[in-house]
Design a protein around this nucleic acid. Structure first.
Lengths: 209, 209
DNA sequence: GTCTATATATGGATAGAC
DNA sequence: GTCTATCCATATATAGAC
C-alpha cells in the first residue's frame, strides 16, 4: 500500500473488463479489442498479463464459478433445519436473478461450449463446487423420522433452481414469448420468492395428491 | 416431383447442416466452412443460396422458434380442462428436454445475444408466438368458480418451464455441479414428469400452507 | 448450380521502441 | 509496464470459369 487509494492496478482493471465482456458476449463473441477499450489500455497489454484469450477467459470463468457456487456453500453447510434452507436457497436465487443475472447466465450458457475441457478441470478444482452430502444426510434423517416424503437432493435442487433461477436465465425469451415488460418481469420474479418456497415445502411436508 | 425419392435438394441440405452447426455452436462460434462440410458442398454455395451468414442464421433461428413455440400452440388452444393442459405441457417439455434439447437451448441462449434485433422482429411475426389468452381466460373462469386459487398465466408457465425444461437447459452445469452421470440425468428427468405436474396441480387445487 | 481461386477484413498474438 | 506497428492465420464474401 504505497500512497493511498489510487486507480485499480492494471491486472485488476483487465479482469473486470474481461468479466464484463465475456459475460455479455461469451467466449466466441468477445473481442480482445473490446476488452482493452473497456479497461482503457491496448491489446498488447492483455497478452502481456494473460498470454492468451483462452487463459484470460479461464480466469474469468473460474472467478464467476466461485462466485456463483460460493454463495450456495454457506447455506448448504449451515445447521439450520431443512425447511429454512429451502426458503433461503429460494430467496438467494431469486435475488441473484434480479440483481446479478449475468453470472448464472454466463455459467450455464458457456458450459455448453464444445471443447471447453477446462470447464471440467476447473469445476473439479478444490473448493469450487459445493458439497451436497450434508443436505443429503439431512433429508435422509427427516425422511427416516417420517417428517418428510423422501426425495433425492438432485430433485430438490432442480426444483429450487428451476422455479427460482430459470426465469432469469430464460428472461429474453420469456419476455418476448409472453409480452412482459421489464417492470412486469421484475414483479413476476418477486412473486416467485414466496410461490417457489411454498410449492417446494408443500411437496416435502404436505404430500397431497 | 420430377423423378422419385432423390437426395435432398441443396437448399434443404444446407438448412439442415446450418441448423446443426448453429445449434451446437451459436452464431459467433459457427463457421461457414463447417456448415459447408456438413452439407457436403463448398462455401461459395452457401452465399449463393443465402447471401450472408446473418441471413442463413435468421432462417435457422426462425425455423427453430416455430418448432419450439409451435409445439405449445396445439395444447394451449385445445378445449381440455386446465388440469389436463398442465399435465400435457409438463410431459411435452420433459420429452423435449430428453429428446431434442438443442432447440430450447438454442432459442434461450441465443436470445441473449446483443444487437440481434431480428430476434424481436422474428418473434413478432404472425403465427410464431403462441397465444396465451385462451388459457388466461380458462384460469379466470376456474378461479371465479372457486375451483382453483387464482394465478397469473405467466407464473404458471414459469412453473412449468422451470420445473420441466430448466434441467435440460442447465444440464452441463448441473451434471458437473452434482456429479450426475448421463444415465442418472436421464432418470432424474423422467422422474420430473410426475413430480412437476403433481407440484403444480397441488399449488392450484390444493393450496395448503 | 457448382466449383476454384481470390479479395478483403478482422482478430489474436508478437516484436521492439520507450 | 505500456505503447505502436506488424505479423499471420482465419473468416466472410465475391469473381469468374465450367
Amino acid at each position: 500500500m504505497e500512497s493511498t487509494a489510487t486507480a485499480a492496478p492494471t491486472e485488476e482493471r483487465i479482469l473486470e473488463a474481461a468479466s464484463k465482456v465475456f459475460r455479455q458476449r461469451g467466449f466466441d463473441g468477445a473481442r480482445m479489442q473490446e476488452i482493452a477499450d473497456e479497461a482503457g489500455i491496448n491489446k498488447a497489454l492483455l497478452h502481456y498479463y494473460f498470454r492468451s484469450k483462452e487463459q484470460l477467459y479461464e480466469q474469468v470463468f473460474r472467478a464467476s464459478a466461485k462466485e456463483f457456487f460460493g454463495s450456495i456453500l454457506i447455506i448448504l453447510r449451515s445447521e439450520e433445519p431443512l425447511r429454512e434452507k429451502v426458503v433461503r436457497l429460494c430467496e438467494l436465487y431469486v435475488t441473484v436473478g434480479l440483481e446479478h443475472p449475468y453470472i448464472p447466465v454466463f455459467i450455464i450458457t458457456e458450459a455448453h461450449r464444445k471443447g471447453a475441457g477446462f470447464v471440467a478441470r476447473m469445476l473439479s478444482e478444490e473448493g469450487v463446487l459445493p458439497d451436497f452430502e450434508p443436505m443429503r444426510r439431512q433429508i435422509a434423517e427427516e425422511a427416516a423420522a417420517g417428517r418428510i416424503r423422501p426425495i433425492a437432493v438432485e430433485q430438490l435442487m432442480m426444483d429450487i433452481l428451476g422455479l427460482c433461477l430459470f426465469p432469469a436465465i430464460a428472461r429474453p425469451m420469456m419476455q418476448r414469448m409472453m409480452g412482459i415488460s421489464d417492470e412486469g418481469f421484475r414483479q413476476a420474479l418477486e412473486l416467485r420468492r414466496s410461490r417457489a418456497s411454498r410449492m417446494i415445502i408443500n411437496s416435502l411436508y404436505n404430500p397431497a395428491g
